[in-house]
Computed example of a mutant assay.
Amino acid sequence: MNTSIFEFLAARRSVKPDRLAAPGPTPEQLQQILTVGARVPDHKKLTPWRFIVFEGDARKSMGEVFAKACETEESQPPSHVRLELERGRFLRAPLVVAVVSSIKPRPGAPEWEQILSAAAVCFNTCLAANALGFGTSWITEWIAYSKTVREALGLKESERIAGFIYMGQPMEKPDERERPIVDALITEWPA
């Protein structure tokens, strides 16, 4: 058993986006991260996912999309404070990667398996970034479900945001959180 990998996985922890500082991954590191992130189970080799990268000013311009979505989709006019929060959403970390679940109709490759593959990409991307010393947070938030945001990103009807992965330098080691008692989650099938 490779003890160092086991210890790495046992200690892995998400870092809140506003606790991620610059610098983010270099282009070469991001290439490594996404290459490893894409090494997941993929029934029928369909690659039912893709990446959208936001860094630099692209994070700010996406914030304008979020503010517009908020104004358009909320039942009550949003406050100035709320709009500023939305404008700064992607500015919380130096780099954000959207993982898009992109279903490819194919006999023998159920949609659910393709969605699970995209989720595996999200987590594997986090692990790859963590292995290079970056903190990560895989979240969706309301923006992943917004019609305005989906349109701005050019998502097809068959595509969904599997997650936004925020990356950067952790400002501090995150506190450990309560974990489930695994024994309570195990059922053994009788012989």
Rank of each mutant, 00 (worst) to 15 (best):
residue 2 N to V: 03
residue 13 R to A: 12
residue 15 V to P: 01
residue 16 K to Q: 11
residue 16 K to L: 10
residue 18 D to W: 10
residue 26 T to M: 02
residue 27 P to F: 02
residue 31 Q to Y: 09
residue 39 R to N: 13
residue 40 V to M: 04
residue 46 L to N: 08
residue 50 R to A: 11
residue 51 F to M: 01
residue 51 F to Y: 11
residue 52 I to A: 09
residue 53 V to H: 00
residue 55 E to Y: 06
residue 55 E to L: 06
residue 58 A to R: 13
residue 59 R to I: 07
residue 61 S to T: 15
residue 62 M to S: 04
residue 63 G to M: 01
residue 63 G to A: 05
residue 65 V to T: 13
residue 66 F to C: 12
residue 67 A to M: 02
residue 68 K to H: 13
residue 69 A to S: 14
residue 70 C to Q: 13
residue 74 E to S: 15
residue 76 Q to F: 14
residue 76 Q to W: 13
residue 77 P to H: 12
residue 77 P to E: 08
residue 79 S to R: 07
residue 80 H to V: 14
residue 83 L to K: 08
residue 83 L to E: 04
residue 84 E to S: 09
residue 85 L to Y: 07
residue 86 E to T: 02
residue 88 G to E: 01
residue 88 G to L: 04
residue 88 G to D: 06
residue 90 F to N: 07
residue 91 L to Q: 14
residue 92 R to K: 15
residue 92 R to F: 05
residue 93 A to V: 09
residue 93 A to K: 06
residue 93 A to Q: 04
residue 98 A to S: 08
residue 99 V to H: 00
residue 99 V to E: 00
residue 108 G to W: 08
residue 109 A to S: 14
residue 111 E to P: 03
residue 114 Q to M: 02
residue 115 I to A: 13
residue 115 I to K: 13
residue 118 A to W: 03
residue 119 A to N: 06
residue 122 C to I: 11
residue 123 F to D: 02
residue 123 F to C: 07
residue 124 N to F: 08
residue 129 A to V: 02
residue 131 A to Q: 10
residue 132 L to H: 08
residue 134 F to H: 03
residue 136 T to W: 07
residue 136 T to G: 08
residue 137 S to C: 15
residue 138 W to S: 10
residue 140 T to A: 06
residue 142 W to L: 08
residue 142 W to S: 14
residue 142 W to A: 14
residue 142 W to D: 13
residue 145 Y to H: 14
residue 146 S to P: 05
residue 149 V to G: 14
residue 150 R to T: 10
residue 151 E to F: 11
residue 154 G to R: 11
residue 156 K to C: 10
residue 158 S to E: 12
residue 168 G to F: 04
residue 169 Q to T: 15
residue 172 E to F: 12
residue 177 R to Y: 08
residue 178 E to I: 09
residue 179 R to H: 11
residue 185 L to S: 03
residue 185 L to Y: 00
residue 188 E to V: 00
residue 189 W to A: 00
residue 190 P to M: 01
residue 191 A to E: 06
